[in-house]
C-alpha cells in the first residue's frame, strides 16, 4: 500500500513543479520568477525525500539538506542584488 501512496504523492509534487514552471516562464515581474524558483527548490527537496523513502535508504537526506541551504542563500542573494545593486556591500 505504501508504494502506491508514495507514487501518488510523487505525481502530486510533479504537478506542483509543472505549475511552478508555468509561473516561472510566464511571471509578469521579476519577483514572481524568484518566488517560483524558491518554490521549485522546496518541491525538489520533497521529491528527493520521497525517493529516499522508496529506496528505503537514509542517504538522500544529506542532498536534501544541501539543496535547502543553497536554495535559501541563492534566493536571499538574488533579492539583495535586485534591492541594492550589490550582494555584500
Amino acid at each position: 500500500m505504501l508504494d502506491n501512496v508514495i507514487m501518488l504523492v510523487f505525481a502530486m509534487i510533479s504537478i506542483a513543479l509543472l505549475l511552478n514552471l508555468y509561473r516561472l516562464l510566464r511571471g509578469p515581474s521579476i519577483p514572481d520568477r524568484i518566488l517560483a524558483l524558491d518554490t521549485m527548490y522546496i518541491n525538489s527537496i520533497a521529491l528527493i525525500i520521497l525517493y529516499g523513502l522508496l529506496m528505503e535508504s537514509p542517504l538522500y537526506f544529506e542532498a536534501a539538506l544541501l539543496i535547502a541551504m543553497l536554495g535559501f542563500v541563492s534566493t536571499v542573494a538574488v533579492c539583495k542584488f535586485l534591492l541594492r545593486g550589490d550582494i555584500i556591500e
Binding site: 505504501l2 504523492v9 502530486m12 505549475l19 511552478n20 509561473r23
Partner: peptide, 23 residues
Amino acid sequence: EWVVAFFLLLGGSFVLIGSIGLT
C-alpha cells in the same frame, strides 16, 4: 504504515495547494 501514508498524503496535498495558489 497507515500513519506514514496519512502524513505523506497530507504533505503532498498541501504542496500541491501551495503551487495552485502560486499559479
